[in-house]
């Protein structure tokens, strides 16, 4: 038996919004310690890894490890029927083919129960190696979203260069070019830790989809090392994270 209750549906909506652009279907792995998800997009260029500890939930019970195959578009449709301040309980019996979602209004005078058909997904698990990132940058999540949006109007490719002086985002296209540079600030909203400078090129369209997680967190952490995938991490309050990995572009 798996049962988890969140006091606010808004958090679940934000998490699903952060995943659904990249993944249409995915398996949720539930265990005693919490909920995890790991999946690549269809083109195998980016990977999303989500972790939510059990103490994020008002009530959490998971008697045995369970994998729930979800259609995220269907889940989005169900979540649209709920108000952000509803409490939500998700429930699934062992070996069940359905996920139950119950929404309870804040005034507790309305309950709505939904059943979502579970999918049998054959999902590949990847081993993400421990990486010592040469550059780690923290910045406001809204600033990162704005930069990704602004750069994607110029070019399909975005170059991220990180040095001790700061982080620079560049795009160069037919209509012209753009360079946006952020330096470390004294108020601490931008911090840059650099062991060695790194410059990598990425597909801007993926960076843009990662910024769907912006409502989850005020800050985003960007980690880079030479010739390895970029890591963009959004914390989920104090209870977990959504991490996006993106393979760098390489010259032919």
């Amino acid at each position: 038996m798996f049962e988890a209750r969140l006091s606010s549906t808004a958090l679940l909506k934000k998490i699903v919004d952060a995943l659904k652009e990249i993944l249409h279907q995915s398996t949720l792995d539930c265990s005693d310690s919490g909920i995890q998800l790991q999946a690549m997009d269809n083109s195998h260029v980016s990977l999303v890894s989500m972790s939510l500890r059990s103490d994020c939930f008002e009530k959490y019970r998971c008697d045995r490890n369970l994998s729930l195959g979800l259609d995220l578009r269907s889940l989005t449709k169900v979540l649209k029927c709920a108000s952000g301040d509803d409490a939500v309980t998700i429930k699934s019996a062992d070996k069940a083919d359905k996920l139950q979602l119950s929404f309870e209004s804040a005034s507790m005078d309305r309950t709505a129960d939904y059943e979502l058909r579970l999918l049998n997904l054959d999902q590949e698990h990847l081993a993400i190696p421990e990486t010592d990132y040469a550059c780690v940058v923290h910045m406001p999540a809204t600033e990162f979203a704005r930069i990704c949006r602004d750069l994607s109007t110029f070019s399909e490719s975005v170059v991220i260069a990180c040095t001790k002086d700061g982080i620079k985002f560049s795009a160069n296209g037919e209509m012209g070019s753009v360079n946006i540079k952020l330096s470390e600030t004294s108020k601490g909203d931008v911090s840059v830790q650099v062991e060695e400078p790194v410059t990598l090129s990425f597909a801007g369209r993926y960076l843009n989809t990662f910024t769907r997680a912006t409502p989850l967190s005020e800050k985003v952490k960007i980690s880079m090392a030479p010739e390895v995938p970029l890591l963009v991490e959004y914390p989920i309050e104090d209870y977990g994270y959504i991490r996006y990995y993106l393979a760098p572009k390489v010259d032919e």
Binding site: S46, I128, P229, Y245, V250, D251, E252
Partner: peptide
């Protein structure tokens, strides 16, 4: 021109 490797090249399947 540039292209992207499959992520599996960086993260081996388990």
């Amino acid at each position: 021109a540039s292209f992207q490797h499959d992520l599996i090249l960086y993260f081996p399947a388990t």
